[in-house]
Nucleic acid binder design. Sequence first.
DNA 1: GAGCACTGC
Length: 712
Amino acid sequence: MATKMISLLGNKDFLSRENLYLLLQFHFHCLICVVTIVLVEKRLVEEVKKNDTLIIVGETGSGKTTQLPQFLFNGGFCREGKVIAVTQPRRVAAVTVAKRVAEECGVELGQKVGYSIRFDDMTSNSTRIKYMTDGLLLREALLDPFLSRYAVIIVDEAHERTVHTDVLLGLLKNVQKARSQSSGQQCNSEKKKSHNNSAMDDNENSQCFSLLIPCQGTKYPPLKLIIMSASLDAKGFSDYFGGAKAVHIQGRQHPVDILYTLHPERDFLEAALITVFQIHLEEGPGDILVFLTGQEEIESMERLVKDRAQQLPEDKHKIQTVLIFSSLPSEQQMLVFRPAPSGFRKVILATNIAETSVTIPGIKYVIDPGMVKARCYNPRTGMESLITIPTSKAQALQRSGRAGREGPGKCFRLYPESEFAKLADSTVPEIKRCNLSNVILQLKALGVDDIIGFDFMEKPSRMAVVKSLEHLFLLGALTDDYKLSNPVGNQMARLPLDPIYAKSLILASEFNCLEEMLITVAMLSVDSIFYTPREKIKEARDATKSFASQEGDHLTLMNVFRTSSEFLEKRKMSGSKDKTAERSLGKWCRDNFINSRSLKHARDIHSQIRGHVEQMGLRVTSCGDETLQFRRCLTASFFLNAALKQPNGSYRALANSQIVRIHPSSVFFRTKPECVIFNELVRTNDDFIRNITRIDPLWLPELAPHYYAAQS
DNA sequence: GAGCACTGC
């Protein structure tokens, strides 16, 4: 059979599975370990009582996320109305876990057990176990710097090292220190200083929040901190928390055989394709999950699988391909959860959305080419780009684990074992490869002034910090000595937006076009609004044309938002129930080739931000038809992103003289104005600018004299 | 005439 398959596939390099793969490793779960979590309740509660900080290393399926908070509740950690917080990097995880725990406890969701995520708060005064996103807890810290309502904070999935997790860990370390000082006899920091005047001690104090230094006699109970992580990273967390104790909990993961190729594969798409059919023809039943880097690869792989399946004998045809990536409309995403028709094998082609965010049942085989697209940030140019790089060991492990959720599985890594050894242990934390403006603004608002000296688990590069400080200074968020300015910097920090968008709202109230800017900023804050399926390109273009504004993409986006709002209003006026009206908005979106998930997100952001600016006392007025006023406001807001047309039709960005082109999705792709401002600079095949509005070049020195007067 | 991994406030 094997030989026959090879001739069908037409590839000489793959003679048989025995030649291709070496079985090298049987299990990747800890063999030495411990007992399952239900047996260790008593011990865990004791450990938390004994240690202020505890690292818990738990594998998937250990139940740590659902069980530990209940143990601590039963162990008396919620006395006097105190709350246990469990943070998650993702919204959907916070919601689903909370639902399950509420069910296990036999309580109504939102009572003893609840969750809180942006736009959706299911908690009440009686909530004691609160699942939430880490970003939301960071926001809470702005209002309550001691996080005084929490007795225990559990940071789950810490090994993912999102920006939010990293900032939160640094913050929690400070809060813990400040709270234990407040409850102990040494609340008075002066007293402590007089005992020990060393430079190191001074340094430590400077890293505490300015807000936390005056204790004012308020006593806070100590904060218990639990960091939950995958095994590879436990030591890093323990070191960061001064040698905190680490406890291992065994998971219920099934064994997964890991197989490697003998030689490196030049074309991993082809190698993945071959492997799909090897599994299909030689292995027992079970679905296959293939990790690919992006939409384009996934779509071409789908065609390849379908084509080759047709070449097989009829009884072997039965392969069903399904796709999943984040920009796929949700109805189509749902198809991956449907079991394949009887007798069919399902092949799921996925991005790393299937690594952590989405768990698909029925998977027995994983194919991992070992590549991933990652964001990368160049602090010198301030440009972000996406590049394809090898995965880390931790990521490879996470991927292979997807084969062992329901029973023993197999993972085919499309590279030799010697290559695996060369991979980095874990993925570079996001904080080292992103723009830091938002992080710095948040920290400043929390009273952390010395950003370079802040105790990050891993420090971002000095250049990245300096670049973002400069940026915030130019936006007026910081004073000459790099302190948060008042009121502008404070107001910006309160708005959950990219700092440049926050600033544009403040300016818009002065330009009398806050109404317009609220919509624009909401629309700019979400993923692509327009959805162009490959097979209906012409219809999609015609539909988007009807929203186009000759003044630019910002007004085009506003047209979409307003038209959709009017549509919804009309439906509601004519007596439709809210739900029915929302459903017909879904149809309206499909008819107009608009991504309804993005539009919904923009509407949520719009109403949340509107609430914030009203609370701040900014005047929400409209410039009506005087869009000139609005474009001037865009110029004042986004002056750092201005570009002038060159004789050859390309543009020169004024801030750094970089040569850029207009992205084909812009209304200005054909008619190129002399001078524009833009919101996004992306590097793909070329350096493209997106979301563009036409401006008068004379507005720049007029509206941003502090920048353009100095330049010329 | 292009193409965007994934999150989050």
